[in-house]
Design a protein around this nucleic acid. Structure first.
Lengths: 120, 120
DNA sequence: ATGTCGCGCTCTTTGTAGGGCATGGGGGCA
DNA sequence: TGCCCCCATGCCCTACAAAGAGCGCGACAT
C-alpha cells in the first residue's frame, strides 16, 4: 500500500480540531499564540496552522495553567519558561488520575444501584 | 511596671502599617478583604481594621500568589483553601532563601570591588 | 482645663484602565 | 459550503485607584 501525501500530512491537527478537543473557540487559540511564543505551530503553504501532538501538549499545559489553575497569562508564561518540561509530566499524571477517578465514580454509582435494588 | 491598655492594643497593625510593609495601597488590602474570606481582620470600636501577625501572614501568602506567582484572584482563592497552611511554610523558606541571596550578592559586589582595586 | 484648628489616617462608595478574549468584515482554498 | 486566514474593532469583567467624608489627637491659644 503506497502511502499518500495525506497520510503524512495527517500527523497534524487543524485549529478547529484542537479547539474541539478542548472545547474552546479557535479565536482563543489564535490569541494565545500571540501571548505564548511556545505555541507557534507550523503553517501550510496556504497559511493554515498545523498542530503536532507536541504542539497540542503545549496547548494543554497552557490550558491547565490558565483555565484550571487560575494563572494570569503573564503568570502562566513565566511558569512555562521555568518549568515547561516538568510541567508536562505532572499534567499527564493528573490526567490519568482524573480518568481513574471517573472510573471509580461510575463504579460507585453502579454499586449503589445494586444496593438499592436489593434493598428496595 | 503596670501594663496599660495601649500595650495590649499594640499587638495589632493598622492597615497603613501593613500597606507600607508590602509597599501597596491600603485600597488593595481592603479590596482583597472582599475577595478572600481568610483576610477579615478584627475591627476596633471605631471601625478601624486591626491586623494580627497571623493576619499579616495570610496577606503575605495572598501577595505571594497574586503578585509574585501571577495567580488570578479566584486561582489564589482555590489555592489558599486547599493548601493554606503548607503554603505558609514554603513561603517562609522562599523568603529566607531570598535573604541569603541578597547577602551573597552584596558579598560578590564587595569581592569584585576588592579585585578591581588590586588590579587597577 | 477647654475650645478649635488642622493634619493624618481611616472609612465607604464610585470610577476606570486594561486584560482577555469574541465577533465581524473581507478574502482564499477544496 | 465549510473551514481556514488576517486584521480591526467591540466588549465585558477584573482588579484595583481615586474621591469624598468622618474620626481623633496634638498644638496652640483662651
Amino acid at each position: 500500500m503506497p502511502y499518500k501525501e495525506r497520510d503524512i500530512e495527517k500527523q497534524y491537527f487543524t485549529i478547529g480540531e484542537v479547539a474541539a478537543q478542548f472545547n474552546v473557540a479557535p479565536s482563543l487559540i489564535r490569541f494565545w499564540e500571540t501571548e505564548f511564543e511556545e505555541l507557534r505551530p507550523r503553517k501550510s503553504k496556504k497559511g493554515n496552522r498545523l498542530y503536532t501532538p507536541q504542539d497540542v501538549d503545549i496547548f494543554r499545559t497552557i490550558y491547565h495553567l490558565v483555565k484550571e489553575r487560575g494563572y494570569t497569562i503573564p503568570g502562566a508564561r513565566d511558569m512555562l519558561k521555568q518549568k515547561g518540561p516538568q510541567l508536562k509530566e505532572k499534567i499527564d499524571v493528573i490526567q490519568s488520575l482524573e480518568k481513574v477517578r471517573k472510573f471509580m465514580v461510575t463504579m460507585k454509582k453502579e454499586l449503589d444501584a445494586i444496593g438499592k435494588a436489593q434493598q428496595g
